[in-house]
């Protein structure tokens, strides 16, 4: 009966993942490997960026007239924020579908999201990346790694660490069923600062991590070290988010740009 319960939990979490995220690894890989009828529009310089802004992300850029006179770096930063906000709302819905999450103290739910969403976001971002670039605008665009590196500092430092993480993470060859459990494990984490009901969250975390372990054994029978490798990725993601939060604070201080209110409340007093 215990194994049956674990399989049910894995299935519930995978279904919640497929239902709540607009993009997933399977869709992203179909686009990145050229198996779609219309390939993504490639953004590789200022000219192609402007074209993409007029078509693919017109809604994001056009939503604020204040962006019209800003330089490319600030406009790209704004688009990154829009995508992050969309993914945070998807992650919130996903979390609510994870069995037990909605029964937690509401303040603990907030804390788990505050500390978990960026780690989850960067883990899922890897699905949209290959060594040459990143899918954007729901898969309709592809921005090259070289172009992102060529932006002026500090913006040029924003994505490169995520590419470096993604290349190592993608070599583990996880599929969406693995990622669903991994993202749930990121969110249901008992050692986030300020949690009230730690034992309740630790019990949830334990069952999700057990299910992840079991699932990896059956889904990747030839890779016996996949589970410990993934546990190490949790540590790497925490470091990646700490550095990202510092960079965002630097940009906020030194650049003439605004930070979305949802991201502001996530970053405030984070680490």
């Amino acid at each position: 009966p215990q194994v049956a319960d674990q399989k049910t939990l894995a299935k519930q979490i995978y279904e919640a993942y497929l239902k709540n995220f607009n993009m997933n690894k399977s869709k992203a890989r179909t686009i990145l490997t050229g198996k779609t009828s219309t390939p993504p529009f490639v953004i590789h310089d200022m000219e192609t960026l402007q074209l993409a802004e007029q078509t693919l992300v017109a809604k994001m850029v056009g939503s604020s007239g204040a962006l019209l006179n800003k330089d490319a770096e600030v406009r790209i930063f704004h688009c990154c924020q829009c995508t992050s906000v969309e993914t945070v709302t998807e992650l919130t819905e996903f979390a609510k579908s994870v069995p037990g999450f909605s029964n937690l103290d509401l303040n603990d739910q907030v804390t788990l999201l505050k500390y978990g969403v960026h780690e989850a976001l960067f883990a899922m971002l890897a699905s949209c990346m290959n060594k040459d670039g990143l899918l954007v605008a729901h898969g309709s665009g592809f921005i090259t790694r070289e172009f992102l590196k060529s932006l002026r500092r500090p913006f040029s430092q924003m994505m490169e660490p995520k590419f470096q993480f993604a290349m190592k993470f993608n070599s583990l060859e996880l599929d969406d069923s693995d990622l669903a459990l991994f993202v749930a494990a990121i969110i249901c984490c008992g050692d986030r600062p300020g949690l009230v009901n730690v034992p309740h969250i630790e019990r949830m975390q334990e069952s999700i991590v057990n299910v992840l372990h079991l699932h990896l054994k059956s889904n990747h029978p030839d890779n016996e070290f996949l589970f410990p490798k993934l546990l190490q990725k949790l540590v790497d993601l925490r470091q990646l988010v700490t550095e990202h939060a510092q960079l965002v604070q630097e940009i906020k201080k030194t650049e003439d740009t605004s930070l979305h209110p949802l991201l502001q409340e996530i970053y405030r007093d984070m680490y």
Binding site: E93, L106, N107, V110, K114, P261, E265, I266, D269
Partner: peptide, 20 residues
Amino acid sequence: KEKHKILHRLLQNSSSPVDL
């Protein structure tokens, strides 16, 4: 609670979208 009012709102009411 005031510090995280958008997260609170998202958790309590999924049908209220966040402006981009």
